[in-house]
């Protein structure tokens, strides 16, 4: 390693390091800026005079007596009932992850272990389904859901998100299952397990890394979704992202943009924590698909 570094010419090292620094700044700065600004008043964060105000916060001090204020958060969480949409988000994401993984591990296992040709066609079909823009599917749901009177409820959104998530989950788990030797479930079957017992007692215990990684991506899909939750959930059942979108419509006129900024930061915080703890799994998940596919 040391030998290698010595061989690298200095200008190149400087150039590539600068480039990386620049990128890190580009990637991280917007978040840091917004988190910082969310504790200011609107006149500071969206200052007409100088953006320097957003850093020092003179008006925040003038209005609240301190350089930092939680008014935005108070407004969003308490006054605008962001709290209930957080609860809805938790219900939706947890259910979507659990159901997706249950369906996905079963299906992915079947696809990885069946040697017949139709598995190929099913995977191709899943790829086409994966490419469907979510909003086109939503436009297919709305009318039937109205007619069946199931529009607006959380379970409806959950099962829809599970289905939309399936193609991706299947692909990913399929490639993880392929990396588990067939000998394992076959010896379990010879030892006296049925196919399902072999799956449950022998394969799943060694599949945890793959399941966790896939679960993370299911979580991200459900958490980040806007098209489905915005169109399929009624006002009181809204999750965070559509809630933030609906803030935009009303708050701008009232001059309470800071509510939205606070909500945005609140919605981003869990993702920060997620990346911090599961960085390795996210990276391996992104590449698992690439290496196999």
């Amino acid at each position: 390693m040391i030998v290698k570094k010595r061989r690298r010419p200095l200008p190149l090292t400087v150039l590539s390091t600068t480039f990386v620094l620049l990128w890190v700044l580009m990637a991280a700065f917007p978040f840091i800026w917004t988190v910082w600004g969310s504790f200011k008043v609107e006149q500071d964060f969206f200052s007409r005079d100088s953006w320097w105000f957003a850093i020092e916060g003179p008006r925040t001090i003038a209005q609240t007596g301190s350089a930092f204020t939680g008014d935005g958060y108070y407004g969003a969480w308490v006054l605008r009932d962001f709290f209930s949409s957080v609860v809805n988000t938790i219900i939706v994401t947890v259910s979507v992850v659990v159901i997706s993984l249950t369906f996905g591990t079963l299906g992915g296992y079947a696809l990885a272990r069946s040697g017949y040709r139709y598995t190929f066609w099913l995977l191709m079909l899943a790829l086409v389904f994966r490419a469907m823009p979510h909003i086109t599917l939503v436009s297919g749901y709305l009318l039937p859901f109205f007619e069946m009177n199931i529009w607006g409820h959380l379970p409806t959104a959950i099962i829809v998100l599970v289905a939309i998530n399936q193609p991706f989950t299947l692909w990913m788990l399929h490639s993880f299952f392929l990396s588990i030797p067939k000998d394992l479930d076959e010896s379990a079957m010879v030892d006296g397990c049925s196919r399902f017992q072999a799956f449950r007692m022998v394969v799943i215990p060694v599949m945890w890394p793959g399941v966790i990684t896939t679960g993370l991506f299911s979580f991200l899909l459900a958490y980040n979704d806007f098209a489905v939750t915005a169109m399929l959930l009624s006002q009181p059942n809204q999750t965070m992202v559509p809630k933030i979108a609906s803030f935009l419509g009303t708050i701008q006129q009232e001059g309470n943009v800071m509510f939205a900024v606070a909500a945005v930061v609140s919605a981003t915080a869990p993702l920060f924590v997620l990346v911090m703890f599961f960085q390795r799994q996210i990276v391996s998940g992104l590449t698992a698909g690439a290496v196999k596919g």
Partner: peptide
Amino acid sequence: ISMVFQSYGLY
């Protein structure tokens, strides 16, 4: 029956 696999298939 019982079987010994080439790559053993240990759990």
